[in-house]
Design a protein around this nucleic acid. Structure first.
Lengths: 167, 167
DNA sequence: CAAGGCATGTAAATCGTTACATGATTTA
DNA sequence: TAAATCATGTAACGATTTACATGCCTTG
């Protein structure tokens, strides 16, 4: 893929748990090329900027496989500024706290909609054969995203109820 | 608090959604002091290194309040290297994929144990009065952490089952 | 005719981690 | 006697973001 195509692919597939800006992708591709893990081919275009299409090399495939096999022996640390703010928001006025909670709830509900409709469609685009193999994890991860957002929505609803019922 | 005390407080309270190293905390405190948001008081000690205890100023309190009131109008982007690896792990051999999933499952189960036992105890330490106000969100957020880990465990179990039942 | 897509990048700044450095006291 | 706790930091590196820069084509 080209850097530009990669960005789009990332936004469609992994946006729930990974993302990157073009300004990070382009230098990263050059670095991978310098390490011999990918090969770049210049594709001149008329009327548009030239493309550079990168293809993984044998060495790249090996490095990727090694990475895949590294044991998952750690739980990644989370940084969530929204939860951090809510942690301290207990000291706000009741109405202000409720406003913050409702604001986030609306966003999460909209997100669930998008996840269930749009992303399900993009998973459907995969062939049955793909779904049986690599694509299966794609669908499983999309489902995980839905579960997480549902949990978040229910938790926000409960929390709003609890705050409302306070003195 | 001193930087050192702050780090311990963070590890006990917000580790589920925020953390920081001492090497980040110490310069940050100096910066806050330079901005007049905290004041530092040197406490000489015998037999131990001197402490610097920081106290929030009036300007600091105002800035903190402004931060608390900023609308929660975005859902923070997540970066989870474990999920990223699982996304691509669909292309591994069945047994290798199962190994990765089981490895992560064991970690998450251990984590749930710790969360339910240890953290519940540290929340108990708060007085009833505190629980009614600021501490309530602490307890709610601990609960959210439990829900998220439970969801993760169930999802991993389901996924393992799905992979096992494949050709 | 403005906005967005296509396509590449660089530069500056920020954020965060790991390693290094010191040194006394306490615990296993 | 080794490791952990207390207590402070700095330096180097790596990761990531935001802003800047270019320029044509297509769509609303």
């Amino acid at each position: 893929m080209t850097g530009y195509e990669l960005k789009k692919a990332l936004d469609q597939s992994t946006q729930l748990f990974w993302h990157a800006e073009l300004s990070q992708i382009y230098p990263a591709l050059k670095q991978l090329q310098a390490q011999g893990l990918v090969a770049g081919q210049l594709l001149p275009q008329a009327g548009k900027p030239d493309k550079i299409r990168y293809v993984i090399t044998a060495a790249g495939r090996e490095a990727f496989q090694r990475w895949l096999l590294e044991p998952l022996d750690e739980v990644p640390a989370v940084k969530n500024p929204v939860l951090l703010k809510l942690f301290f928001a207990g000291s706000l006025e009741k109405e202000q706290l409720l406003h913050q909670l409702r604001c986030q709830l609306a966003l999460q509900r909209a997100r669930l909609q998008r996840l269930e409709v749009e992303t399900a469609a993009s998973v459907q685009e995969l062939s049955q054969a793909d779904l049986a193999q690599a694509g299966m994890m794609w669908e499983r991860l999309r489902h995980f995203g839905v579960l997480q957002v549902q949990t978040t929505i229910e938790w926000l609803e409960d929390t709003i109820r609890a705050v409302e019922e306070k003195s």
